[in-house]
Simulated assay, not measured.
Amino acid sequence: MERDHLILLDRDPQVVGIASQPFWLHWHEGTRRRRHAPDYFVRLADGRGRVVDVRADDQVDDAAAESFEAMELACRAVGWSSSGPGHLSRSSWRTCGGRPATGGAGVCGG
Rank of each mutant, 00 (worst) to 15 (best):
R48N: 05
R76N: 08
E29N: 12
A77N: 05
G79A: 03
R35W: 08
A63M: 01
S83K: 03
A45Q: 14
L88N: 09
V51P: 06
D46K: 05
D39T: 05
A56D: 15
E66Y: 03
G30K: 04
G30L: 04
A64M: 14
Q59K: 12
R34I: 00
V78T: 01
S89Q: 12
Q59A: 13
V52M: 08
D62V: 13
V15K: 06
S89D: 15
Q14N: 11
E29T: 06
D58T: 14
D61K: 02
D53A: 05
V16K: 06
R48T: 05
D53H: 06
S82Y: 00
E29S: 12
L88E: 08
H26R: 13
A77E: 06
G47F: 06
R50G: 15
F41Y: 13
V52W: 09
D61E: 03
R55D: 00
Q59F: 04
R48W: 04
I18H: 02
H36L: 00
V42K: 07
L73R: 15
E72A: 15
R32M: 06
V42H: 07
E72I: 01
A63Y: 02
T31G: 14
F23W: 09
R32Y: 03
Q59M: 12
R55K: 09
R33G: 12
W27H: 03
G49R: 01
V42N: 07
R35N: 10
D57I: 08
R50A: 12
R50E: 14
P85E: 07
G47R: 05
P22V: 05
G84W: 04
A37D: 07
F41G: 13
L88A: 11
V52I: 15
V60L: 07
S91M: 09
S20V: 11
Q21R: 13
E69F: 03
A19L: 11
